[in-house]
């Protein structure tokens, strides 16, 4: 479980995050949603320590991350898997080497054990027998899946996904969403997904935090979101006329 308590962040005089609190539960797909520029990714970067919080607490099972020294932070980070928006795979390494990297760094596994784990992770993301390909040879969806395989290689307790569906076609997006959800359930991980994709919200949103202009604006589940009366959230959810039509069609049935 991760809990953020009253976190604040400004860049110069520009306030980006204002008094955000939330509990991200273990074994659940927790979503942070909001418009572009609302501060979603900043919250994620604060949580993993890529930015420093101005105020507030980020508790990983009770341990306040911002107050830890570098070694303490690194110990927590070893339990984190992260899927970046662009994948962030190491260009000079093959898929297999990318997935094996955290194992080489942090485990004393034998060569065979590592290979077994690499193959297991690649199987999980449906990239079997693609071991020797380089990131430059992969499509966007394959890169995301490969990055997901690397993120889960070292059995993380926490999985962060920054806009896992951006730039993907709807079919591939569903594959990625389903993968994230099944990995969360199977390994009982605390998963945090940043997204503005409504399909993901409906499909995998078990616990949702809606951020509006850096403020916590609404919390709930994927099912509850359509019953909201919050005008900003309604604007966000029904930004597309198509979504509105589908919603009314389903409701009238």
């Amino acid at each position: 479980m991760i809990e953020i308590k009253n976190i604040h962040k400004s860049f110069g005089s520009h306030k980006v995050i204002n008094d955000v609190s939330f509990v991200f539960e273990q074994g659940k797909t927790n979503l942070i949603i909001g418009e572009s520029g609302s501060g979603k990714t900043t919250i994620l970067k604060l949580m993993v320590g890529l930015h420093e919080v101005d105020n507030g607490e980020i508790l990983y099972n009770g341990e306040n991350f911002p107050t830890l020294d570098l070694k303490g932070k690194q110990e927590i980070r070893k339990k984190i898997g992260m899927l970046f928006q662009g994948g962030a795979l190491f260009d000079s390494q093959t898929l297999e080497e990318n997935v094996r990297f955290p194992l080489d760094m942090f485990t004393d596994m034998s060569k065979e054990e590592k290979q077994e784990r690499v193959n297991f992770c690649l199987d999980k993301v449906q990239l079997t027998n693609k071991n020797k390909l380089y990131p430059g040879e992969l499509s966007g969806g394959m890169k995301k899946r490969a990055a997901l395989a690397r993120a889960i290689a070292n059995n993380p307790k926490y999985l962060f996904c920054d806009e896992p569906n951006s730039g993907l076609d709807p079919k591939t997006s569903i594959v990625i969403d389903n993968l994230i959800q099944s990995l969360t359930k199977e390994f009982n991980i605390t998963t945090i997904v940043i997204t503005h994709d409504m399909n993901s919200v409906v499909e995998i949103g078990e616990k949702i935090l809606y951020i509006y202009k850096g403020n916590p604006w609404w919390t709930g589940t994927g099912k509850e979101i359509f019953n909201t009366t919050n005008p900003e959230l309604l604007d966000f959810v029904f930004a597309s006329g198509f979504m509105k039509e589908i919603y009314h069609a389903v409701k009238n049935k």
Binding site: R77, D91, F101
Partner: peptide, 13 residues
């Protein structure tokens, strides 16, 4: 391309 961020988040210097 966030590869350095990826290393940091893995707990690597």
């Amino acid at each position: 391309t966030e590869q350095i961020d990826a290393l940091e988040i893995m707990g690597i210097n």
